[in-house]
Design a protein around this nucleic acid. Structure first.
Length: 269
DNA sequence: GAAGACCTGCTA
DNA sequence: TAGCAGGTCTTC
C-alpha cells in the first residue's frame, strides 16, 4: 500500500520520535517469513545489541543503518506499518516483528497481509534513482533506450524508485499522457512534462503526509495511526466513472500490467 | 506480456 | 460470498 510519500512520512516520524541513536536490545519475529533470507533466530542474533544509527530511505525501502556495516532494510509492501509503544511490551494482533529499543521504546511492525519484508544487507540492489530527488538529467538518462508502456515503466522500480499505482496514475494525468503510450514515442517536451509530473505528485504526497483511501485494514496510516492528507488531492486514482476535474468527462478504468489504471481519455494523449 | 503466488480483511 | 486491494517475485 505505501508508496514513496507514505514511507517518507513514516521515516520522518520515526526520526522525530527519537528512534535514531537507540540500541536494539531485543528482537521478536512473530511471522518467520518477514525476515529473509535468514532464519528468525539467525536474524535476531545479528541485530540484537547493535545501535540503530540513522534512518534513511530509497524508493519504498526504509533503511535502518546499524553500527557495523549492515543495514536493516524494510519494505512495507501492501499493509505494513510501524507504531511505537513505551514500557512493557504488549504484542499487537498483527505484529510480525518488534524491536525493543533502549530507553523502553518498542518499535512494532504491524502487517496484516504478511507481505512486508525485513532484510539485512549492506545495500539495496536494482533500484533506479529515488523519485523524490531524481534530477531531470537522470530521468532523461533512464528513459533513454526504453520503449515500455508508460504505466508499466513508472511502476518499474529499476526505472525510478518509489512510484506505485496511485502516484503513477496521478503523474500520467498531471503530464496529460495516455498510460498506454510507449515511452519511445515521447517527444522531448512530453518527457519533460512526465519528469515534472512525477516529481510534482511525489512531492505533493510527501507534503500532505501520504494518501489514504477508504477505511480498510490495509488502509495507510502513519506512525501515529493518522490517515494521510493527500486523499483529497487525488485527481484520478480511485475515481473511475467520476468526472475528470479538467474536462468533466467520466474517467476510464482499464488494466495495464495487471494493475488497475484510471485516466481521462480526453485529456491524456 | 500474462498469470499465479504470497496473504488477510474490507466492501459490495 | 465473491471480488478487490496501494507491491513484488517467480514461472510460463
Amino acid at each position: 500500500m505505501p508508496e514513496l510519500p507514505e514511507v517518507e512520512t513514516i521515516r520522518r516520524q520515526l526520526c522525530a520520535a527519537g528512534v535514531e541513536g537507540r540500541t536494539i536490545e531485543k528482537v521478536y519475529i512473530e511471522w518467520p517469513r518477514t525476515v529473509e533470507p535468514l532464519t528468525p533466530s539467525a536474524f535476531c542474533k545479528k541485530v540484537q545489541g547493535h545501535k540503530l544509527e540513522e534512518i534513511g530511505r530509497h524508493g519504498k525501502w526504509l533503511i535502518f543503518r546499524l553500527d557495523g556495516n549492515e543495514n536493516l532494510l524494510v519494505h512495507l509492501r501492501m499493509t505494513g506499518r510501524f507504531y511505537l509503544t513505551q514500557g512493557t511490551l504488549k504484542k499487537g494482533k498483527h505484529d510480525r516483528a518488534i524491536l525493543q529499543l533502549s530507553g523502553g521504546l518498542n518499535l512494532h511492525f504491524r502487517d496484516p497481509r504478511k507481505f512486508g519484508r525485513w532484510r539485512l544487507a549492506a545495500s539495496i540492489e536494482g533500484l533506479g534513482p529515488d523519485a523524490l530527488t531524481v534530477t531531470k538529467k537522470e530521468f532523461f538518462q533512464c528513459l533513454d533506450g526504453q520503449n515500455k508502456v508508460l504505466k508499466a515503466l513508472l511502476l518499474d522500480q529499476s526505472f525510478v524508485a518509489g512510484v506505485g499505482n496511485i502516484y503513477a496514475d496521478e503523474a500520467l494525468f498531471e503530464a496529460r499522457l495516455d498510460p498506454r503510450r510507449k515511452s519511445g514515442t515521447l517527444s522531448d517536451a512530453e518527457k519533460l512534462a512526465l519528469y515534472k509530473a512525477v516529481t510534482k505528485v511525489i512531492k505533493a504526497g510527501v507534503r500532505n503526509k501520504g494518501t489514504s483511501l477508504g477505511s480498510g485494514q490495509g488502509n495507510y496510516v502513519d506512525l501515529n495511526g493518522e490517515a494521510g492528507g493527500h486523499r483529497e488531492k487525488v485527481k484520478v486514482y480511485g475515481r473511475a466513472g467520476q468526472p475528470c476535474v479538467v474536462c468533466g468527462q467520466p474517467l476510464h478504468k482499464i488494466q495495464i500490467a495487471q494493475r488497475t489504471t484510471v485516466f481521462c481519455a480526453r485529456c491524456q494523449k
